[in-house]
Design a protein around this nucleic acid. Structure first.
Length: 906
RNA sequence: GCGGACGUGGCGGAACGGUAGACGCAGCGGACUUAAAAUCCGCUGGGGGAGACCUCGUGCGGGUUCGAGUCCCGCCGUCCGCACCA
């Protein structure tokens, strides 16, 4: 009975089911119902047991869950179920990151209201998550677009405002001049708006900011204490915060060259040691001096306008060709009044960092070097690497950024980089000009304040009112939430809140005069910066958090999500928690004690002859024998095979392409519903955890899933066999175990010990391997024991089966319940305790040590576990291989690493 | 461009500085079957040898060490993030 065209999930046709097959499609919903009816995953805040909070990053309700969700939530569920078995009260909630642009895009494309679209998606995805068998407390479900959630966010915004943690200032946005709307960086493609195709401009807007920079130092310093975070995430955050010790330097300007007799230009530098290598000064296009100069120079004004066409993405700015424009202004070198430096407006100088002005030392900065090479301004090396001859050291295309000795730098010559920095700083600090020092040391951070204003509808309204006489007035607490109006249209570009006929027009809460609401909504990162706190008591209506609940549950013990959130979401949440502490809404600084970042789910791509992609469900893979070579003397045949793909049910070939992140555009997605519908949730969960380490990408493959499905059936048969011979009732534990029983018990306890350790460390792929190993050993043992084994063995079988089922329960919970019931065990395995390891069973009486000669393995010795060094050495020297290698001579050295290895140096 | 990671059989991967390739997938041989599926048993890094064994092998080039996939230096390649996607 071959598959008939569309069916590439042939394994699960219901009519193939027989009594000895496990039918996931029937069993899974049944157990899900049982769990729900008994409410065993609902968590009570007043439960006295020790707490464990496991959280996976909540999903954006985009429509349907994808394989990335399956992986993420499976991992979290393993931890939650394991910790529950270990006796913790576990908080494992789920919610929806429900505000965001896709809902507005859907509104524009399909004339469906963002709210309807969002809640329909939530309903679909919730049903999908439920079919995964996750041990979630759904009573605590929240959606960030619910006024019952965002009213608290508005309240905290106002509390932050009062506490001085919010401010208004200008910043740049991508402006689409045709659509008359602000664009996200992802909506800017090659410098053009994605919808209109118009060239994007930078535009200045007054916006709301959270003052995250207030916590720069603390956010940086506290990273050292987050010892259950991946080192790479901490490194990324450190670099993002970007602390650097630098120097502000006031350069005098030649007044004859300045537009309005400006007399100085202040720059910030971290490389003041290279001052004698300076070749030019660079101004940001937004620098006041640049603007002043542009006012009198139309060509410069045109250049500045050109710079503003670059959009706001850092990547685009960095990658763009380095361009500049000579303003004609000349700066005077701080150590040589006769040295003039040209002042350029340069497209790579940022107004947001430092003072918006730099001095350029091309020999030791790649951007500066690219710049001078373009404008022929020359370069002079001033730092010479150790071992290089200063006389011949030249820089051409590659800047030297390493350490070395100062050259071509007058009084700095011969100093190290650090000495030179100190010397320059000291001299400029003590030099007074116009009543202030020329140089001033300062610690700077790359981190910028968090701009939270979005000119969009589907977000949390910013609860302030603008009054012509009173200024910015907070919305009174009693009037919260400021709700989004429902009657909006998306026919036209721009912010629907801004053009709504009545919504924004209100009376000023202070003077009662005519005023308008803020029409900006908050960045959706705000919504996700405190949801973990709300989960601890999502019911409280009078405040964002219940302090007793939030302080007892937080920090999250294990947070799991994608590496793509390594910086922004995690850093914003760390800030927000501090801000909540400052305003009395929480009592701690760090929200996530343990963090794990999981890899992506990737899949092969399939390309048809016309260049378009085919989806995995349209493709059939066959393994063909490419060639068979027969050895003429031995008759041994060796073959090489090749995988080929065709459109299912046809001979039309399809090219198997590279393995890439699952995406709609590459059509290499696999629908979790289809997988769970045909194989069951446990198979999908098991496959997600097997093979690949959880922090790396996992390749989804049909073969792999089938392997997982086969294992499900194998376990079911194994447990069936075990149940048939296992001791039942209250058979007492035998005083002595025979050899087969002991061997089985050792295997079970060893697996138990290893799985426990690996779950604690989130090494799920190794857990899977250990479960496979135990299942293999168990099967072999049962087969060898035959039909009527002795009582001690039957006792061991019951123990091993009970351990095995509990070991894979966190990963395949439905199958585990079914097996648990088949074994006649009491209650639900979901409520069973984690088994206890019997340590004696992990220790062997003898150890077998590999023996190396000069570092290469040449044999083994088996010695008593208690053997001393001399005893081991004697046994090793007696080995034939060692005797042969030594040829009668004494060894130069024998290294014995107890219980591990012996190395004989001949 | 800046920042971060990763690189081991045909494939995914395992390996406190200590036997490289656990476990799985794919493949091959066999058992069962009228046949297939399913299942079970065995083999499976390259080269050599009848054989116990020998030899080469963890992206490339050096180094440290009794011993390096693992540590150090320098390359090459691939992937991710970059502040208005979530």
């Amino acid at each position: 009975m071959m598959s008939n065209g569309t069916n590439h999930f042939a394994a699960s046709e219901p009519d193939l089911m027989t009594a000895d097959r496990y039918n996931a499609r029937v069993a899974e919903p049944r157990w899900q119902k049982t769990w729900e009816e008994r409410a065993i995953f609902a968590t009570a805040n007043d439960d006295p047991r020790p707490k464990y909070y496991v959280l996976e990053m909540f999903p954006y309700p985009s429509g349907r869950i994808h394989m990335g969700h399956v992986r993420n939530y499976t991992m979290g569920d393993v931890v939650a179920r394991y910790k529950r078995a270990k006796g913790f009260k576990v908080l494992h909630p789920m919610g929806w990151d429900a505000f965001g642009m896709p809902a507005e895009n859907a509104a524009m494309a399909h004339k469906v209201h963002p709210r309807e679209w969002t809640y329909a998606n939530i309903a679909t995805m919730k049903a999908q998550l439920k079919s995964m068998g996750l041990s979630l407390d759904w009573q605590r479900e929240i959606a960030t677009c619910d006024p019952a959630y965002y009213m608290h966010q508005q309240r905290m915004f106002l509390d932050f405002l009062k506490a001085g943690l919010v401010e208004r200032k200008t910043s740049k946005v991508n402006w689409d001049p045709v659509d008359q709307t602000v664009l996200a960086n992802e909506q800017v493609i090659d410098g053009r708006g994605w919808r209109s195709g118009a060239l994007v401009e930078q535009r200045e807007l007054t916006q709301w900011f959270f003052k995250i920079t207030r916590f720069s130092e603390d956010l940086l310093a506290a990273l050292d204490r987050l010892d259950r975070w991946p080192e790479k995430v901490r490194t990324m955050q450190r670099n993002w915060i970007g602390r650097s010790e630098g120097l502000h330097v006031r350069f005098a300007l030649d007044p004859a060259t300045t537009p309005n007799h400006e007399s100085e230009l202040e720059i910030f530098t971290t490389r003041h040691d290279t001052l004698f290598g300076a070749k030019f000064m660079g101004l940001s296009a937004d620098h006041p001096l640049a603007r002043a100069a542009a006012a009198k120079n139309p060509a410069l004004a045109a250049f500045i306008a050109e710079c503003k066409r670059m959009g706001t993405a850092q990547e685009a700015i960095d990658k763009a060709e380095k361009l500049g424009f000579d303003t004609g202004i000349r700066a005077i070198h701080p150590f040589d009044p006769s040295w003039r430096l040209p002042v350029y407006v340069a497209n790579f100088v940022l107004m947001e960092y430092g003072t918006g002005a730099i001095f350029g030392c091309p020999a030791h900065d790649q951007r500066d070097l690219d710049f001078v090479n373009k404008y022929d301004l020359g370069n002079t090396p001033v730092v010479c690497p150790e071992g290089q001859d200063p006389a011949t050291f030249v820089i051409t295309d590659e800047a030297y950024v390493g350490d070395g000795r100062m050259i071509n730098s007058r009084f700095l010559d011969g100093m190290t980089f650090a000495q030179a920095q100190e010397e320059v700083a000291k001299r400029l600090e003590t030099e007074i000009r116009g009543g202030a020092p020329v140089g001033r040391r300062e610690t700077m951070y790359r981190l910028r304040d968090w701009g939270v204003s979005r000119q969009r509808y589907w977000g949390c309204p910013i609860p302030v009112i603008h009054c012509p006489s009173c200024g910015v007035v907070p919305v009174p607490a009693a009037e919260l939430p400021v709700r989004l109006p429902d009657d909006v249209d998306f026919d036209r570009p721009g912010n629907p809140l801004d053009r709504h006929p009545s919504w924004k027009h209100v009376a000023c809460p202070q003077c009662g005069g005519k005023a308008t609401r803020e029409t900006d909504t908050m960045d959706t990162f705000v919504d996700s910066s405190w949801y973990f706190a709300r989960f601890t008591d999502p019911w409280i209506a009078t405040s964002p958090t219940d302090r007793a609940a939030v302080d007892s549950w937080l920090p999250v013990d294990q947070y799991i999500g994608g590496i793509e959130h390594a910086i922004l979401h995690l850093l914003y949440s760390r800030f927000f928690t501090r801000a909540m502490k400052a305003t009395g809404h929480a009592g701690l600084d760090e929200p996530f004690a343990g963090l794990f970042t999981q890899g992506m789910v990737v899949h092969e791509t399939y390309r048809k002859a016309d260049g378009t992609f085919a989806s995995p469900s349209e493709v059939e893979i066959k393994t063909l024998i490419e060639s068979t070579v027969e050895d003429p003397t031995s008759g041994f045949k060796s073959t090489s095979s090749i995988r080929v793909a065709t459109l299912t049910g046809t001979d039309i070939p399809v090219e198997i392409g590279p393995i890439e992140k699952m995406s709609k555009s590459k059509r290499n997605t696999v629908d979790p519903d289809e997988i769970m519908g045909s194989y069951g949730a446990d198979t999908a969960r098991w496959f997600m955890l097997s093979d690949s380490p959880p922090d790396r990408d996992v390749i989804w493959s049909e073969e792999g899933v089938q392997g997982a499905a086969r294992f499900v059936q194998r376990v079911w048969r194994l447990i069936g066999e075990a149940a048939a011979v296992a001791a039942t009732g209250d058979l007492p534990r035998p005083a002595l175990f025979g050899e087969p029983a002991t061997a089985l018990r050792k295997a079970a306890h060893q697996a138990l010990s290893r799985v426990s350790e690996d779950i604690e460390k989130l090494r799920f792929n190794r857990c899977v391997a250990h479960v496979y190993e135990l299942a293999n050993t168990f099967q072999t043992s049962l087969t060898a024991a035959g039909g009527d084994p002795p009582a001690d063995y039957r006792w061991a079988v019951r123990e091993a089966a009970s351990i095995l089922v509990r070991l894979f329960h966190p990963m395949m919970p439905h199958l585990a319940e079914e097996c648990w019931a088949a074994l006649g065990a009491a209650g639900l395995v979901a409520e069973a305790e984690w088994p206890e390891v019997e340590a004696d069973l992990l220790v062997e009486d003898t150890v077998t040590l590999p023996v190396q000669i000069n570092g290469k393995k040449r044999g083994d010795v088996t010695v008593p576990r208690t053997a001393g060094k001399a005893e081991v050495e004697a046994a090793v020297l007696a080995l034939d291989a060692v005797q042969r290698a030594l040829g009668g001579a004494a060894p130069k050295k024998v290294i014995v690493v107890p219980h591990r290895i012996v190395n004989v140096v001949a």
